[in-house]
């Protein structure tokens, strides 16, 4: 679609956005930092003719620290997240993921809400959000609702969001427990590459027993996923080589990587297994 056919509504505040989505649900797409849409527009693959420009709407940006949770405005850029000292301290995997997303010029423009809504299975921040048990806030003219992020993606680019809703916040639950985080992305090069496979784990341990664990994965399924059966197998059990072997078998059956331009099924499966195994072995 050529730029001369793209109609843009320049929203001044969140009410503008919600009113328009309420009046004409399904007609409008959201333009945030533009780092995905502009690429598709230039390639000629962008098909939606009506955009609402939300860039610069202050209601949608900003990071708020509450007692039990951190609220990240959907329009927060990766750079804003990277430079936030409390997120850095309590949610280091999100920082790492944001620093691995594109380059600095992309991080200055790309937003966490856009990263979620673009719904690439290979995006870098979703595995971290899944491992942290994040929630998201969806807002329509008549309702503000919260959803666990783990329940948001249903299939490839298919999400539990209504046509009159917009993603407004990402919420991270704070904890005072001693936690262990592990994040690793495997790409073609260290910087500025798209993931072949990515894993994020947060767990708590009591002596050598795993008391809680969440495992988020990217680029190994049609969407970012948790591997609940692998988590259940590990939870409540004492870490041993035998347990790790069982977990590896379980995760291999729980993920569904594909062949594409960046990698292939067999390699992705092997990498996902190795990432989990190496991490758990390091805890023995």
């Amino acid at each position: 679609m050529h730029i001369s056919s793209i109609n843009v509504y320049d929203a001044k505040n969140i009410h503008d956005v919600l009113n328009l989505l309420d009046k004409e649900p399904g007609r409008w797409s959201i333009l945030a930092g533009g780092t995905d849409i502009m690429v598709q527009l230039d390639l000629g693959t962008w098909q939606a003719p009506n955009l609402i420009n939300i860039w610069g709407i202050s209601d949608l940006s900003g990071i708020r620290i509450n007692k039990n949770e951190i609220e990240i405005g959907a329009l927060s850029t990766f750079s804003e997240i990277i430079n936030h000292p409390i997120i850095k301290k309590e949610f280091p995997m999100l920082i790492e993921a944001a620093m691995l997303t594109g380059s600095i010029a992309i991080q200055n423009r790309g937003t966490i809400g856009g990263n979620i809504m673009n719904a690439s299975p290979a995006a870098d921040t979703p595995p971290a959000l899944l491992a942290y048990g994040a929630e998201i806030e969806l807002t329509s003219k008549n309702e503000v609702r919260r959803l666990f992020y783990k329940d948001f993606h249903i299939n490839y680019k298919l999400m539990r969001i209504n046509q009159d809703e917009i993603l407004t916040k990402i919420i991270l639950p704070r904890t005072s427990n001693k936690t262990i985080d592990f994040y690793q992305k495997v790409g073609t090069r260290a910087a500025h590459s798209i993931s072949k496979a990515c894993i994020a784990v947060r767990l708590t341990m009591d002596k050598k027993t795993i008391t809680d664990i969440k495992i988020g994965l990217g680029a190994v399924a049609p969407m970012p996923i948790r591997v609940y059966m692998t988590e259940d197998l590990l939870k409540g059990n004492k870490l041993s080589m035998d347990l790790i072997d069982q977990a590896i078998l379980q995760i291999a059956s729980e993920i569904h990587p594909i062949d594409d331009i960046r990698s292939n099924k067999a390699y992705r499966l092997r990498v996902a297994i190795n990432l989990l195994r190496n991490f758990l072995k390091g805890l023995l």
Partner: peptide, 26 residues
């Protein structure tokens, strides 16, 4: 033209951005 190479970098409000990825409305 797709945000990979950085040749089109400019500053907007003092921040480094790729000008191939910024629509003029912004």
């Amino acid at each position: 033209g797709e945000g990979e190479c950085g040749a089109c970098a400019v500053f907007i409000n003092g921040e480094l951005v790729n000008s191939c990825l910024v629509p003029i409305i912004q």
